[in-house]
């Protein structure tokens, strides 16, 4: 972790009577297990979507595999479902953690009537859920970032204590939207976290072709906001750094440009073939960086997760995904009149 972030609270309160450790790296075991399950479930759902695409059952999928640790670390540091969240298309794990269900996602993937994001109007992974303050994903990249500044400005003007969290990829930080948003964030010390999920590629274009700096967070100083870079393959480190940034924002002490270094384990989307720009060797390295088995190992070594528990988690996630898949596939499509509107709010 770079920047001025401190290591946060490290109270290791253990009850002597219990054999299993109750904390790890200063975090309670229950929280860590919840985080692990959230990562695991997102992965299983993501994998199922790929399968459905390969079977020709859905037109498109874009994946968050490799980003889960970062997303879950940040999501769990939020007041989930209350704090404002303006996601981007890779945020499957994070929207699930903030309140969309697996079934909600599947209804969207199949373009079904009861898709709560848009009623089947938008492409898959264009998430939204009003009741949980999950705002609407758009396709033009980075448009959500200045909107998040507006959400945060409104929160400040209203005297509320919710923060706004928004995410985008590192390539998308080249859009003017990003720079204008950070200008507002700095000038008004907004309660805003701009999360950059840096996976090193914008589709096929590598980071060196995208910007002449090593860390996206280096851009923060130019706007008068905090800049932080975190290992996004480590959910615990991400959680702690995110918690600190969110606490600062909530206390009215300003915005953070929060860069998480992650890997994109898949091609850009179901329409991409990454063998044209990533070598076989790169892919082997990538696989070794997968945050999910790493976190599992970490929890097991600490004695927080057992084999049996992991098997149960796996079965539970699969059951949830199966149910979501089958229910969504059988669910009705929207009536064609739904295409016609309403276009205007009453």
């Amino acid at each position: 972790m770079r920047g001025s972030i401190s290591q946060g609270e490290t109270s290791m309160v253990m009850t002597v009577a219990e054999t299993a450790p109750r904390t790890l790296d200063g975090l309670p075991a229950e929280l860590l297990l919840d985080m692990y399950y959230a990562m695991l479930r997102a992965r299983r759902l993501d994998e199922r979507c790929w399968l459905l695409h390969r079977q020709g059952k859905i037109a498109f999928h874009i994946s968050g595999m490799g980003h889960e640790a970062a997303q879950i670390g940040i999501a769990f540091a939020m007041r989930r479902g209350e704090d404002h969240f303006l996601p981007y298309y890779r945020d499957l794990a994070m929207v699930l953690a903030c309140g969309l269900t697996s079934l909600d996602v599947m209804l969207g993937v199949f373009g079904k009537k009861d898709d709560p994001s848009s009623g089947g109007r938008q492409m898959p992974e264009h998430f939204s859920l009003r009741s949980k303050n999950i705002y609407s994903v758009s396709s033009p990249v980075a448009t959500q970032v200045p909107q998040a500044a507006g959400v945060a400005l409104a929160e400040k003007l209203k005297g509320g204590d919710r923060v706004a969290v928004t995410c985008l990829g590192e390539g998308s930080t080249n859009q003017g939207d990003f720079h204008e948003a950070l200008t507002w964030a700095g000038v008004h010390q907004l309660p805003l976290i701009v999360v950059v999920e840096n996976n090193g590629y914008a589709i096929s274009v590598p980071m060196v072709q995208e910007m002449a700096i090593l860390h996206v967070s280096d851009r923060a100083g130019a706007y008068g906001v905090r800049g932080v870079t975190v290992d996004g393959l480590d959910p615990i480190a991400t959680y702690k750094a995110a918690k600190e940034s969110i606490d600062i924002a909530r206390a009215g002490r300003g915005a953070t440009l929060f860069e998480v270094r992650v890997v994109r384990l898949t091609p850009h989307s179901s329409d991409d073939d990454d063998t044209t720009y990533r070598s076989k060797e790169d892919k082997v390295t990538l696989k070794a960086s997968d945050p999910l088995p790493k976190f599992r190992e970490h929890l097991m070594q600490a004695g927080i997760l057992t084999d049996q528990q992991d098997t149960e988690f796996g079965a539970k996630a699969m059951a949830e995904v199966d149910y979501a898949h089958q229910t969504a596939e059988a669910a009705p499509y929207p009536d064609v009149e739904w295409g016609a509107g309403p276009v205007y709010a009453p």
Partner: peptide, 26 residues
Amino acid sequence: PTRIIDSPLAELSIVAVGIGAAMNGL
């Protein structure tokens, strides 16, 4: 100054900040 806010010279975000604020109840 909390009701009449001089913006940065940046039209994209004058509108985008408005959109965000509108979605958040203003």
